[in-house]
């Protein structure tokens, strides 16, 4: 059981909350407090839009412990529109072809259960799915 470590990461996991560098405006995810662009301190929280595109991907058949129930599943490197790249599962893809460059959006889903599948704490976090549910208009 690793409840504290999942708990302390919940803002990042649930809603892609990272940081923005107050010095050079670089957007940072995962948060790392030191800006990888300019090296200055960066602790200002920033919520990412969740939109991005697939940089690369593959489908896993030999899942590590805790993930077997979901296998086979697809994982990807997703380039967020604000700049950073994240490692995440793709979901809701079924048999649709995935392609490098495919637009995706963040959703919050179950990642696994901590410890026992039926009794352990549920770990929720970001995954990405094909961008197919677009609002017809954008907010100002």
């Amino acid at each position: 059981m690793e409840i504290p470590r999942h708990w302390r990461l919940k803002k990042q996991r649930y809603a892609l909350v990272g940081e923005v560098c107050p010095h050079c405006e670089a957007k940072i995810f995962p948060p790392r407090d030191v800006c990888p662009e300019c090296g200055d301190e960066a602790k200002t929280l920033f919520e990412f839009s969740g939109r991005g595109e697939v940089y690369s991907y593959t489908t896993l058949h030999n899942a590590p412990a805790g993930y077997q129930a979901y296998a086979p599943y697809t994982v990807a490197l997703v380039k967020l529109e604000e700049g950073p790249m994240v490692t995440a599962q793709l979901t809701d893809i079924d048999n649709q072809p995935v392609e490098v460059g495919m637009p995706v959006e963040m959703v919050t889903r179950k990642l696994r259960a901590e410890g026992d599948d039926d009794r352990g704490m549920l770990v929720y976090g970001y995954k990405f799915r094909p961008m197919e549910l677009q609002p017809l208009a954008a907010a100002d």
Binding site: Y70, Q89, T108, L111, L122
Partner: peptide, 23 residues
């Protein structure tokens, strides 16, 4: 629901839609 969905994850998405409309 997909294998990674439950009432919490589905509520989050519906609520995100509600907040997007509310602004």
């Amino acid at each position: 629901p997909g294998p990674d969905e439950d009432t919490a994850t589905m509520s989050i998405e519906a609520a995100r839609n509600a907040l997007a409309r509310a602004g």
